[in-house]
Structures are given as C-alpha cells and as structure tokens.
Design a protein around this nucleic acid. Sequence first.
DNA 1: AATGCATATGAATATAAATTCATTTAAAGT
DNA 2: ACTTTAAATGAATTTATATTCATATGCATT
Lengths: 193, 193
Amino acid sequence: MKEKSEKYSAILEGAGAVFARLGFHKATISQIAQEAGVADGTIYLYFKNKDDILYQYIQFKTTSFFEKMRSAVDATEGAEEKLRNLIRCHLKEFQNDRNMAIIFQSEVRYLRNIALQVKDISKWYLDFLTEIIELGQMEGHLRQDLFIGLVKRFVLGAVEGIINTWVAAEGKYDLTAMADPLVDLYLGGIRKR
Amino acid sequence: MKEKSEKYSAILEGAGAVFARLGFHKATISQIAQEAGVADGTIYLYFKNKDDILYQYIQFKTTSFFEKMRSAVDATEGAEEKLRNLIRCHLKEFQNDRNMAIIFQSEVRYLRNIALQVKDISKWYLDFLTEIIELGQMEGHLRQDLFIGLVKRFVLGAVEGIINTWVAAEGKYDLTAMADPLVDLYLGGIRKR
DNA sequence: AATGCATATGAATATAAATTCATTTAAAGT
DNA sequence: ACTTTAAATGAATTTATATTCATATGCATT
C-alpha cells in the first residue's frame, strides 16, 4: 500500500466527486470505484474503510489549503492587506475545487466521525484570524474594544455563508469577486456615517 | 392517523433528541421509538418513513420559529431596532431548543432529501433581511451603496457561525449575550475611525 | 358480554451496501 | 522460460436496520 500511487489519488478524487454529488452516506463504494476506474476491492488496498477515504480526503485538501493560505497572508504587510489576501485566497481555492467546497460546506460539519478533524481545521483558521486582528490593533488600524472571540467567528461565519450561497447557486457566478466587498463590510459595517 | 396526538409529538421530540445526539443517519428507528416511548411499528402509523420524520420535524420547528421572528421584528420601529430584535430572537430560540440548533446547523444543510425545504427557509430569512436593510436605507441610517445580495448573506452567515461555535462548545455560555455585540459589528465594522 | 373499530406491538422480512477473500493478472528477478 | 512477489479483481458474505404485518390490546357501543 504505497501512499502516493496513481490509484491512491484516483480514488481520492473519485471519492471527492461522488461525495460532492450524492453526499457521504448515499455514496457507495462501487460508485467511487467506478468513478476512479478501479475495482471495489482495490479501494481496500489503499484505505481502511469508507470513513477513512473521507478522512484522508479532508486531510489532503486541508494541508494544501493551509499552505496556500499561509503564503497568501505572509506575502503582504499590514493587517488589512493580510485579511484581504486571506479572504481572496479562501474564496479562490474553494472556487477552483468545487467538490471540495461542497464537501467542506455540506458534509463536514455534519459527520461525527470526523468531528475532531473539523475542530482542528476551525481552530487553525480562527487562530490565524486572531493573529491578523491583533496585528491590526497593534498597528492602530483596528478598534481596540473588539471582542476577538466574537470577531473571528463573525469573519469566518460570513465567508462560509457566502460560499454556501455560491454552492447552492451551482457556482454560476464569480466567487472571488466577493472578496473585497466582503472585507469592506467587515471593516466598515453597514451603517451610514 | 390523527395529526396532533400525544404520540405524534412524542415521536417528533424523541426524534429530535436522537437526531441531535447521533445525527440523522446513525439514528435508528428503534432508538427513536424507545426515546418516544412507543414501539417501532407505531412510528409508521404517524410517519411515512424515516425521512418524513425529519421533514415534519423541520416543518414544525420552522413554522413556529418564523412566527416568533416575525412578531419580534414587527414589535418595533426602525431598521436598526428591527435587526437587533431579529438577531436576539434568532439566538434566543436556538438557545432554548438545543436539539433544534444542532439539527439545523449540522444536519440540515447536508441532507439532499430536504434541500428544497432548506432553500425555502433560507429564502424566507434572506428576504426578511432585505426588507429590513431596505427600510434602513430609506430611513437614511444605512449606507446606500450596499450590495444587498452580499449583505444579507453576510448577516446570516455570521449569526450561523456564532451558533455553530456555541453548539460546538456544548452550549456552555449564554448565546443571547452575543446578539448586541454582533449587531454592533454589522453596523460599525472593525476598523478604527 | 359481545361485537366492532382504532390503535399499538415487536418479531420476522427484505434490502442494500460495506467488507472480505479466493482467484487472476501483471511485474520483477534469475 | 520459470518462479516469486505484488497488485488487482469482483462475486460471495456479512451485517445492519428500515419497513411490514399478523397478532394483540384497549375502548366504545349496543
């Protein structure tokens, strides 16, 4: 069972397609096998069981997602620009991999087997946001009286909401175009001044 | 099969408890029956099948939720106060019925069988927000240059994010206390001025 | 108390799909 | 060409649980 064989990846991507189309529970091993172009039994040479396929899928996708987010943020100076890049990168990656977007938005929260994995992902993201917000406060560009625990959920919740709508709309419009207007809302709010 | 018998309600609430604890797919009819204090077969006198239990659960809960939201908003004048009441009411109702909160946040988006039902719920909520935002613009208290399609998702996404955190934290703190700080973020944003 | 009707029971059935494994195919080494 | 090892197959097995249904219980009417 070598980790990075062609078949390993084919099964992962095949599973991604089937999970996105039918949801984890309605997806069958046979369908995944067919999508990946292998026999049912072959899957068990590479994965412990059905749950493990999803686990590895998430693991694989998040690792690469986090790396990209980190470099997008590090590529620039100042909290506001870092925040913009974070959101731009987030939306771009989800737009580029719609199966992943569907699985993360619709399946992941739901499945208890992977609850811990999800907690880690959220935590990573929220800690990242904290870092940026605190930087902005040090720079003097963000309010000092922010309840950071609330702000970071506010930020992540809103991006996810935007992505959910895009997914529900079958990806018919450009998701990345939402990034800057969204950040403007975070920063300035909706009240007239 | 009379609709509002004791057993009908007992099964619905029992199902709510089991769905919240184990998730829809891992929940078995036997467990729901036990929780409701009836025999397995009895459930089929009141519901077509397992999916129908969830469908009716959601229908029942949203109807009552929407009524409460509507009167909370109608009870006051001015967009800002209406928005505050909307969010307060939303958080209060979810805090008061944690099973419902779990099912709505974790299960509902996921289940394809009820996708239409969910679209209706979202639409109802988003239209409601549009109404309030447009009122605020007419009053001159909200910015004129808002992209409403984005703003309403921004608002709903953030509330849902707050609720998700609360659910994940096993409801250990007071959710309703988040309402006003959250609305302040919507209105004023995080940028220092 | 006997009859009929509605409601409830839970063991038996049916079904679907995850997982296994005996067999086949391909590849590598000598 | 022959042997050994590894990888792949897919039909057969196992398991789990949603759903059915023959039977029972309770309740009202006469």
